[in-house]
Design a protein around this nucleic acid. Structure first.
Length: 300
DNA sequence: GAAATACCCTGTGGGC
DNA sequence: TGCCCACAGGGTATTT
């Protein structure tokens, strides 16, 4: 679910509130997500200032002025929500249905799956909460020395950023030769390229007119070139859509959520191919236990 | 050693 | 109506 564009949107969304803010406390409502949470996180984050918010693949990096960096992965259902400490009636209606609606001061009641709460004071002196909510708990967090971030076991084997010049025809051609897996698997492999998941892999291959069943080492140069270009197009377009929907979403609710993407093939089994010259229906197949969606007529 | 599969987890929706 | 099961999927551990 949260792939590169969604993670990028979350980063852009939390950046204005977070950079320059000071953490006051961290509340761990449980001791683990996918893996144990660092139990010393409250102690190590307390009273430190946020210097920088960035992204690497699907990981969010929050760099503090005390030389610590918080690494967050949203897994499948992880969400980050920023709310004011005291909520307006409007906020409550839009966001927190089980908040004490009738009390004079509206105090936040934790929702189910609010696993970690970061309390901070922003640059305007207002106290806010950054809430990490994750239904299926496939997400993860770690707090490491900033100098060691890129050598962290979660980050050290990541391939290049797909939107960087490093992700080029020359690079991908080299990575795909002698590979005996399918191009779908290769695109989803974070060691080949960072940030692409099951949804965008299907989207990119449909746009590139390459079948997800094709073996990586059988791709022609012209096809690899299309994959490079469409990867950048598809991800950039999704980030643009995320940015604009984020703005709308904030106007109504004051928080940050995922946007509704419209997909060309993903989750469109038995529906018509979106290529106007094609009358085929989209097929769904299972590859390595994951659904792939494609058009048998347009993709070869 | 590479590639495929199992597993973790919870909410949802279809079938009976 | 209610129960059961399949399914969704990122990343790691285990198996092939």
């Amino acid at each position: 679910m949260p792939e590169l564009p969604e993670v990028e949107t979350v980063c852009q969304g939390i950046k204005p509130a977070l950079v320059g803010s000071k953490f006051l406390d961290v509340i761990l409502n449980r001791s683990n997500l996918r893996w144990p949470l660092p139990s010393d996180m409250p102690k190590r984050l307390k009273f430190s200032l946020v210097k920088k918010v960035s992204r690497r693949g699907k990981y969010i990096l929050i760099e503090m002025d005390n030389l610590n960096t918080l690494i967050i992965h949203l897994g499948m259902t992880g969400r980050i929500i920023i709310i004011k400490d005291e909520l307006s009636q409007e906020d409550v209606g839009a966001f927190y249905h089980n908040t004490a609606r009738n009390s004079k001061t509206l105090t936040k009641v934790w929702e189910k799956h609010d696993h970690v709460v970061f309390k901070f004071v922003n640059m305007k002196g207002k106290e806010q909460n950054l809430i990490y909510n994750d239904t299926r708990r496939f997400g993860a967090m770690d707090l490491v020395k900033s100098e060691a971030v890129l050598s962290h076991k979660w980050l050290r084997n990541l391939g290049p950023e797909p939107l960087s010049s490093e992700f080029s025809l020359k690079y991908l051609e080299k990575r795909l030769t002698r590979k005996k897996n399918t191009i779908k698997s290769a695109l989803m492999s974070q060691e080949v390229v960072a940030g692409i998941g099951n949804i965008y892999a299907s989207e990119i291959l449909w746009k590139s007119r390459v079948s997800p069943l094709r073996l990586s080492d059988t791709l022609r140069r012209i096809e690899i070139n299309r994959i490079i270009k469409e990867t950048k197009n598809v991800l950039n377009n999704a980030i643009l859509k995320g940015g604009s929907s984020l703005k709308d979403f904030r106007n109504t609710s004051g928080g940050i959520g995922y946007f509704q993407m419209h997909f060309s093939v993903y989750d469109r089994e038995k529906e018509s191919c979106k290529n106007k010259k094609c009358s085929n229906k989209i097929q769904r197949i299972i590859q390595s236990g994951r659904s792939s969606f494609f058009c048998n007529n347009c993709q070869h």
